[in-house]
Design a protein around this nucleic acid. Structure first.
Lengths: 231, 231
DNA sequence: TTGACGGGTGTACGGCGTACACCTACCTTG
DNA sequence: CAAGGTAGGTGTACGCCGTACACCCGTCAA
């Protein structure tokens, strides 16, 4: 009776922390972090909400676990290259992960704001990043600055104000285009230019990946210059 | 009877959108955005929760209004200087505002993720920023890149992974220092260096303001170089 | 005098995280 | 084999949230 609807009375896979985290990540992937509730995760697993608490101690701790799952998806550091391309590759790998899980920045930032230390997996990631800089000859003080300069770009955050994010609300009260152009002439000019740029993807208006790498390289070049001046 | 407790039966200031937004900002300032609920705002104003809805249409719209209040606190663009210091000053003004309202990035980012356009006040801010770049001789395409490069730094976000944020949870499960050092040797080295740097503020470990300006200038210098190459 | 209306109230609903008591299937130990 | 601990799933309940909806009252125009 309890398992009437099509559940073929299989051996019934037992719950586990891994399964809970997996279901949570999947749910967030498809509905964003707002769609994530203990009740919904439980439902997706065919289980009662409180069952989850045998495997995670709270929703916050579950979010931490999800972060660690994501960090685990970032490629390990490349061996045998210069620091610059090692950092570049790793950051781009992190970015690929973020594109698969667009809700990640929000969750990571929230965690950082609430607790004093990042999750262990994140610490390990950062530690190895620092290791790359050190291996490239950066004096420790410059590594410190480098971390600040890169900020969350270290984790592949594009940290932009305007991102093309599919499935946003269409903004009911949006002004008509002409009024926009009149009130915000510079933005209008910009929008025009971007729209007519032959390089740009139609619809998106600009190539986020290109812009991310552009900004990343500008940053890395700046750091390289600092390194040269320091040594 | 309704106004028994000390309320001296004053003329009773009527509610208004401004007063609601003000109370909301004050509440967020002191308790973070998590402490912000319609019920609490109402309580702070000595009013029943539903009364707020005569002045804001929803909590989301209230958050939008709060953003506009904050943007209004940013200094207007300086006249008669080169683009670089104009941008620099404005961004630092934005940052000062953010330090007064540490919850702002969270709210702004959330809004950006949910809706297609920023609030009008934000649009105006960005428009004038684009105007500064244009006035400095940036070709429109380079302005586009510049916006991407600066990202949310445009608004003074320090967007860092590790920020000293007073009042965070002390992390019950934090590892002892030695184990930390063993597992994350590079981070340990970094922490040591930062702690012993005579420049650094005790306790904080590093001077956020300095690091923010350091990163900002590195970015602006990079843009300046691009501008020279382009012209 | 009347009636519309702006603005504050009261009640209620569905959703949330999770504390706490429970029940049951299994494993260990004698 | 019996006894009993324990890990893991269940059910109920509490207090919070945002907000829909009906109401009610003071002011002001006609």
């Amino acid at each position: 009776m309890a398992t009437q609807a099509g559940a073929v009375a299989q051996p019934r896979v037992p719950l586990s922390r891994t399964r809970v985290l997996g279901a949570a990540v999947a749910l967030a992937d498809e509905g964003g972090v707002d769609a994530l509730s203990m009740r919904r995760i439980a439902q997706a697993l065919g289980v009662v909400p409180m069952a989850l608490y045998k495997h995670v101690t709270s929703k916050n701790e579950l979010l931490d676990g999800m972060i660690d799952v994501l960090v685990g998806e970032i490629d390990p550091p490349a061996e045998g290259t210069d620091w610059k391309s090692a950092v570049r590759r790793r950051v781009l790998s992190a970015r690929r992960m973020l594109l698969r899980h667009p809700w990640a920045p929000e969750v990571i930032e929230a965690r950082m704001k609430a607790r004093a230390t990042p999750t262990p997996a994140l610490l390990e990631y950062l530690d190895s990043m620092v290791g790359i800089f050190r291996g490239g000859g950066f004096p420790i003080g410059l590594v410190h600055h480098a971390l600040h300069v890169m900020g969350s770009r270290l984790l592949g955050f594009s940290q932009e104000l305007f991102e093309d994010r599919p499935g946003r609300a269409p903004d009911t009260d949006a002004l008509p285009a002409e009024e926009m152009a009149a009130r915000f002439p510079h933005l209008a000019e910009l929008a025009m230019a971007v729209a007519h740029d032959p390089e740009s993807v139609v619809g998106s208006g600009c190539d986020d990946q290109f812009e991310f790498e552009f900004a990343l390289d500008l940053t890395l070049d700046g750091l390289e210059r600092l390194l040269r001046n320091a040594s």
